[in-house]
Structures are given as C-alpha cells and as structure tokens.
C-alpha cells in the first residue's frame, strides 16, 4: 500500500549506485581490459588475478561480518602472520594437525578481541589494535624472526595445484564465500548479527544474546584470517611472518566498504565484498599492465574508497 510509505526514501539513483555501483565499476574495468589490455582474456591471467586476491578476500569475509556489527577488526593481518608462523610448527605430525593448530590460533585471537569488545566493553578499533601490534610480535617470536621454507607436498599442492583448471585456493575462497553468505542470510546467528549491528539497544531489549553474538563474530573473523594466512603461506611456499598479511586489514576493510557494507553496521554484503576485493585487485593489475607506477594505483584506490564512503552517507542512503 502506497500510503504506508511516509518516510522519505533515498534518491533511487544514489541508492542504486550504492547497492550496485561496485558491480558496475567492476564490469566497466573488465570491459576496458578486454578491449585495451593485451593477454587479459586468457585463462592464465584470470587465474593469476583470482589467486592473488584470495588471501585478502578470505580475510575480508570475516571483516564484513565484524563491520556488520558496527565494529572493525584491525587484527586480521597480524592473525594471518600468526597462523603462518604456527603452521610449520606441527607440520612434522602431518598437515591436519598443523592446520588445526593454525586455525585454533586464529580462533583464540577472535576470542581475545571478541571478549574485549563484548564483555569488557572496549571499542573494537582499540581492542583489535592491541592484537594488530601484539599478534605480529608473537608471530615473529614463534618463528624466531626467520622465514621457514615449506616442504610438505600436500601444503604445496594446496598453494599451487588446481582442480579442473581452477586453482585450489580459488575454490577454497569460493566455498568460504558461499558458506559465509549462507550464514548471514539463512541462519539465526546471521540475522541476529545484523540486528546487533543495526540497533544494539533494541537487540538487547529483544533479549538477543548480544555478547555471545559479538564474540562468535570475532572468532569467525579470526578463523578466516588464519585460513587467509595458511593460503598465503602455501602460495609463497614459505612461512614468512614478517611479510604475510602486512596491511591486509586495510585492504580487507577497503574491499568491504567498496562492496557496499556500511561502516555503521546493520548490513552485510558478502557478494559486494567479493566484488570490492576483485575491483581493487583489478585496478592495480590494470595499472601495472599499462606500465603505470603502483603509486598511481594507490591514488585511484583512494578515490574509489572516498566515492564508496560518500555513497554510504545516511542522507543518500535513506532516512535513518
């Protein structure tokens, strides 16, 4: 019924731009490359682009959930490094125990920041900043500050092998995207997460287990960051805690924001996050292919971030 709609709604163009702009930008960039960049439309190049983006994409999935609760997880890069440092420790017992230990490390990091945020009541940016600093330090201590070569054949296969022409790491990222997307959309937890981010006091009054939801969200982010660290290690064929995950938190936040997830919570866009990560990857790839300096790429990325944030403004995004 039309009369029920009284609150002014966002200018439709602005809202559509916010919701679908990232896909349009990605489409335009792909079209441009197909036309003007040599060797772009090859399977090899496609795989290269996808493989390069996987660690950031996986970390960004967790970031999207945290941002959906009106938080932010600055620790993902350090958790990646920590998981990379933990991985070789137990490789002697086989791949499975090593992976489990690395994932457990990520989960514990999530418990740590989640508890600080949900129980102690520290602001997410500060709570995860502690782990951003401490996590990498711990990783370097564990690894004794050294790079360790990976010789486990299964782990190397995971990093460079492919199934039916698709790199395994890309398959992993795809499966994780589907799982996280499903969790957000169809599970009780996912819906409650969005509610907590949208209106925390309403969620408390509605009797939602707000603390538990927040902690679990940070744990998921920690585990996904650990997976990202494992993938990065497998691709690098070495555990390098000083390099792995450097500034990954910022790239992940960029992917999430460019993908249309508002920083003030209450909305999680998983597919948008994937598109955001791909867009950022493709921008730097395009500029490199055209022999422009990487610094130019940073400027372009900055412009895109500003545009994305502008589109999120409440005035454009509809009445609050």
């Amino acid at each position: 019924m039309a009369e029920a709609t009284v609150t002014p709604v966002a200018a439709p163009t602005a809202r559509r731009l916010r919701d679908y702009g990232v896909y349009a930008a990605l489409g335009i960039l792909v079209a441009y490359n197909l036309l003007f960049t040599g060797n772009f439309a090859t399977l090899a190049n496609l795989n290269t682009q996808l493989v390069q983006v996987t660690p950031i994409l996986i970390a960004a999935l967790g970031m999207a959930l945290v941002i959906g609760t009106e938080g932010v997880d600055l620790s993902v890069g350090s958790v990646m490094a920590l998981s990379a440092a933990l991985l070789p420790l137990y490789l002697g017992y086989g791949l499975m125990p090593a992976l489990l230990v690395a994932l457990l490390g990520g989960a514990l990091c999530g418990v740590f920041s989640g508890t600080l945020v949900a129980v102690v009541g520290i602001q997410p940016i500060v709570a995860t900043l502690a782990l951003l600093v401490g996590g990498r330090g711990l990783a370097l201590v564990i690894a004794d500050g050294r790079l360790k070569d990976i010789r486990n054949p299964m782990l190397l296969e995971l990093g460079s092998g492919s199934v039916a022409g698709i790199p395994i790491v890309v398959l992993i990222a795809a499966v994780l995207t589907l799982i996280v997307g499903f969790v957000v959309r169809y599970t009780t937890f996912g819906r409650q997460l969005v509610a907590v981010g949208g209106n925390r006091s309403a969620s408390v009054l509605a009797g939602l287990p707000v603390r538990r939801i927040l902690i679990v969200t940070y744990v998921i982010s920690g585990v996904l960051a650990a997976i990202a660290g494992i993938v990065a290690t497998a691709r690098l064929t070495a555990s390098d805690p000083s390099a792995i995950g450097q500034l990954a938190e910022l790239s992940a936040i960029t992917a999430v924001v460019v993908g249309g997830t508002p920083l003030n919570g209450g909305r999680v866009r998983i597919l948008g996050t994937v598109a955001g990560a791909l867009l950022m990857q493709l921008i730097s790839a395009t500029l490199i292919k055209h022999n422009l300096p990487t610094s130019a790429g940073l400027v372009v990325q900055a412009v895109i971030i500003v545009v994305a944030v502008l589109l999120q403004r409440p005035r454009l995004a509809g009445a609050k």
Binding site: Q192, N199, A206, L208, G266
Partner: peptide, 26 residues
C-alpha cells in the same frame, strides 16, 4: 533508538526476538 531496526524488513523486525524458536539447528 531502542526499538526498530529501520533497514531490516517488517518480517525480520517481527521475528527478531523469536528467531531461536523459529529455527531448527540454527
């Protein structure tokens, strides 16, 4: 400020407090 989740649908706002009992295995 304490009640509605403006960006969520009517359906989601109604079932918010009853989600667990409307769910099976999460």
């Amino acid at each position: 400020s304490d009640g509605i989740l403006p960006d969520l649908s009517v359906r989601e706002n109604i079932v918010l407090a009853a989600l667990p009992r409307l769910s099976a295995a999460g």
